[in-house]
Write a protein that binds this DNA or RNA. Structure first.
Lengths: 359, 359
DNA sequence: TTGTAGGCGTTATCAG
DNA sequence: CTGATAACGCCTACAA
């Protein structure tokens, strides 16, 4: 640290500077904010005096209070902020969002929201002109606190609310499509691994009730899409083992795959609701001497780079575009009031992790 | 957007709520900030009235002004913010930094700083309690504006300043080490590709003057370390082609490698000052039917995951730890005043991209 | 347990 | 081009 020490105490202010110079506060303010409203000479004098007195310019917070603009928007994430930087999809979303922030010259405030605390003051006290929520469960207290704030809000991957704009994809249809792909390959006996379905730390088998009551809209819809497809093909959904993991990591995918295999060693395909889980699963299967895709087909979701590179059959969703769209909805005055919901397209990507099953 | 519309106009305030209830402002304030200073009944009444009047709680900005705390720190990056999310090293730094922010319950404000503008108001006007600067050139106007602000500051990868705390690695020694490695393998004829050395958009050969005048401390030191090693081994530094690229990408690495090869087709080793450039270079060499490492050895720097996975010989630096350390220096009161400079260790990683040269 | 009152540092407005 | 006045919305001694 350096200077910091003197903040507040002894710190020169607009007023003290004005007094010192024998001019009005307006004049000093103008020197900073409207140089054209001032004779160059006077402005020069002001700046000189500022330097001499160690005045660094108008206080941002006081300015914000007066102008009623924070110059920043807040981002709320499912998890601790640091977690986002380990998740390639979140990073891509952030890239898109900051693209728009950069364009608008607006800051992005990453709001801390520890999932094991219900202290929502970080949300209540964030000095922002708007909020974006990324992939939050419906019953999250931080989300509720955010929606209570009187600022514009955009939510990504959530069911419709009239309290906020929305941006998302049709998870259900995309996953239905994936189901159809597997069915067309002849797979009828499958297993499923999915990300967390609720705020409670559940790891293990998911029953139907939990599937339908899932607070995570995205996961719920992906499972529903899968069910749509398999039931349409005459496969009983309640026979299919669905295993949930709270953590979203390669390791979680691996262990979930292991658990599914124990529940039903005879599956010919394993569906993961995310690429990260799929990659973990593939690793685990190989470790168990199952060939992918010859013995077992594996599918993912998201289209993150690592998965595409690895040839995982997946659904590619435009995560970066989603972030951009969220930013535009919030920041672009021309877009405001136009659309309250933006649905983005997804693409099915046939990789090398799926193959026909000849039963 | 939703509510937003009514902000400011008609918005209830602490004062209006108090008036409505016939109590003092203190009481309402206490209802939010010190519930124990209030009878539960009264508090309940306050909250009810708040709900009825659409009062969402104390205004964060006004609160900040009064308490002189923003509850956030700012991060300044070399480039547009969105760019950081494409750079694995920057993402890792962010992860470390946000780890500490999460712990402290403090927000992280990503400050927009377009490199092609000198409008530093985004820095001047950021409502933060401190700043972290990541990998900025010495002569950057945004950096200067940041240092002028009367708040604590931590800089990553910069030369010593008494205006801020520092966190970094010994780039020069680490690269010297890499030079020694190559020399011990018998390489004497090498080429070098490096990241941008200054704010001007230069792409191409770098002369000695530019090397030494580089505004990017890190790059300057890495080149210096290389020079140290090769000159000590009797190799004339001015014979070695050094090619700079402004962009930091795989493509830039590839094109830089191509240019080096044209300058000296006889090199037996190619040193890159970053893993990203090294990976680009390796791709380009293979495209030109040069075998790595049999025909040409290639080295990187940073130790990003993709490079380690690909077996690139590199220097692994603790980027995440660097971010954490920056956060601690700024946020942890126990750490403040202790160390003004934190140097982190690096590790040489022998990969499969280097091999002996038998001249 | 509740109220009084003074500022935090700035900018908008409007008059000179 | 310059200045006076009035908020912006809140926190926090201090007093009752």
């Amino acid at each position: 640290m350096h200077s910091g020490r003197l903040v507040g105490r002894g710190g020169a202010t607009l007023a003290s500077l004005a007094r010192e110079l024998g001019v009005s506060r307006t004049t000093v303010s103008n020197a900073y904010n409207r140089p054209d409203q001032l004779s160059p000479a006077l402005r020069e004098r002001v700046m000189k005096a500022a330097e001499r007195l160690g005045y660094a310019g108008p206080d941002p917070v006081a300015r914000s209070l007066r102008t009623r603009k924070a110059g920043a928007i807040g981002l709320l994430l499912t998890e601790q902020v640091s977690y986002a930087f380990r998740d390639p999809a979140a990073v891509a979303f952030l890239e898109g969002l900051t693209l728009e922030c950069d364009r608008a010259g607006i800051g992005l405030l990453l709001v801390p929201a520890s999932p094991d605390s219900d202290d929502v003051r970080s949300v209540t006290r964030a000095a922002v002109d708007g909020f974006v929520a990324y992939s939050m469960p419906e019953d999250d207290p931080f989300l509720a606190a955010m929606l209570a704030r009187p600022v514009p809000t955009v939510i990504s991957d959530q069911p419709a609310t009239d309290a906020a704009d929305l941006v998302g994809i049709d998870d259900r249809a995309a996953m239905r499509n994936m189901a159809d792909h597997l069915i067309s390959l002849g797979h009828k006996r499958i297993g499923v691994i999915c990300m967390r379905l609720g705020r409670d730390q559940h790891n293990g088998v998911v029953d139907e009730r939990r599937q339908e009551g899932a607070g995570y809209h995205v996961q719920r819809n992906r499972l529903a899409g899968l069910r749509d497809g398999f039931e349409a093909a005459g496969v009983a959904w309640d026979r299919i083992p669905v295993v949930e993991r709270f953590d979203h990591s390669i390791a979680a995918g691996a262990s979930a795959a292991g658990q599914v295999l124990e529940l039903d060693p005879g599956i010919t395909a394993l569906v993961a609701t995310s690429d990260v889980l799929a990659m973990g699963a593939i690793g685990e299967l190989r470790r168990r001497h199952k060939r992918v895709p010859q013995d077992i087909s594996v599918t993912g979701f998201d289209g993150v780079k690592a998965a595409l590179d690895a040839g995982v059959t997946t659904v590619s969703q435009p995560v970066t575009a989603k972030g951009r769209e969220a930013g535009r909805l919030l920041l672009d005055p021309a877009v405001r009031h136009r659309a309250r919901q933006v649905m983005l397209p997804t693409t099915f990507v046939a990789g090398t992790s799926t193959a026909p099953h000849h039963g």
